[in-house]
């Protein structure tokens, strides 16, 4: 079980403060939804958890140890776009994570190791429901299928933390609802902590066990650069979980 501590994190680019005084203690196996207006630093926070960017001040700890300064296999990620490799088939895309871990020089596996890796990859592909598309290239998949593939690909390294950066922002409502069910199921069946950035409040309330909103406390134009966004709400969501377990779907855009 993974705990994450974000301790007084600031992020500044040159003179501009993007995030300030962000502190969070994340309990094990949480599903954290981060919402906020455009440009309020949601994605920046996610990139810092990923290790793609470093906090200007403060620190982020995973299980008590500071986050390494670069992305690594303990933190999986799905972006809104470009998360899958266009030159690899579905099967190859998912197998790749195992090959990276097991073959540092060749980057490829051979013989029995390759067979085992492929079998494991196919298991994850079946989990996300892409078994019909094993040999297809991503360009032949719909947007929703590409995101399913990206999720399977991220899960194969068994990350402690899964980071989702508006992963369903470009999908149709119907497909999006299917993806919600998939993500909840995968999260329930694992021990991982999920962070997801979203624009959509109803999606956030539906999926999350905890909702974090980011906003700027001071928003006058002359103050914008000097004051970053910080956490304005930190809401534990419990009342909807029973509904979710009973499988009740909320309609898209429902006001909670």
């Amino acid at each position: 079980m993974t705990t994450i501590s974000i301790r007084d994190v600031w992020k500044e680019y040159d003179d501009q403060v993007v995030l300030e005084r962000v502190s969070l203690e994340i309990e094990p196996h949480a599903f954290v939804l981060i919402v906020g207006a455009s440009g309020c630093g949601k994605s920046t926070l996610l990139r810092m958890l990923l290790g793609q960017e470093q906090p200007s001040r403060g620190e982020i700890l995973i299980d008590g140890t500071p986050l390494p300064p670069e992305p690594g296999p303990d933190r999986g990620v799905v972006f809104q776009r470009y998360s899958v490799f266009p030159h690899l088939t579905v099967r190859e895309n998912v197998t790749l994570g195992l090959e990276f871990g097991q073959a540092p020089i060749a980057g490829r596996l051979f013989g029995g190791a390759r067979k085992r890796a492929i079998a494991e990859a196919e298991h994850y592909i079946e989990l996300v429901g892409l078994e019909q598309a094993m040999d297809k290239y991503p360009s032949a998949l719909s947007g929703g299928m590409q995101q399913r593939l990206a999720i399977a690909q991220a899960l194969i390294t068994k990350p402690k933390v899964l980071l989702l950066d508006e992963p369903f922002g470009a999908l149709d409502p119907g497909i999006r609802a299917d993806m919600h069910e998939l993500v909840i199921k995968l999260w329930q069946d694992s021990k991982m902590t999920v962070f997801m950035v979203s624009h959509d409040l109803s999606e956030a309330f539906y999926l999350g066990t905890r909702l974090i909103t980011l906003d700027r406390r001071r928003n006058r134009p002359e103050e914008r650069e000097r004051y970053g966004a910080s956490i304005t709400h930190d809401i534990p969501i419990t009342r909807r979980r029973e509904n979710r377990h009973r499988g009740i779907k909320l309609a898209e855009g429902d006001v909670l």
Binding site: V84, G101, P104, I156
Partner: peptide, 9 residues
């Protein structure tokens, strides 16, 4: 970045 999260050097 995705490749890095999959453990690629």
């Amino acid at each position: 970045v995705k490749a890095e999260t999959l453990g690629a050097n």
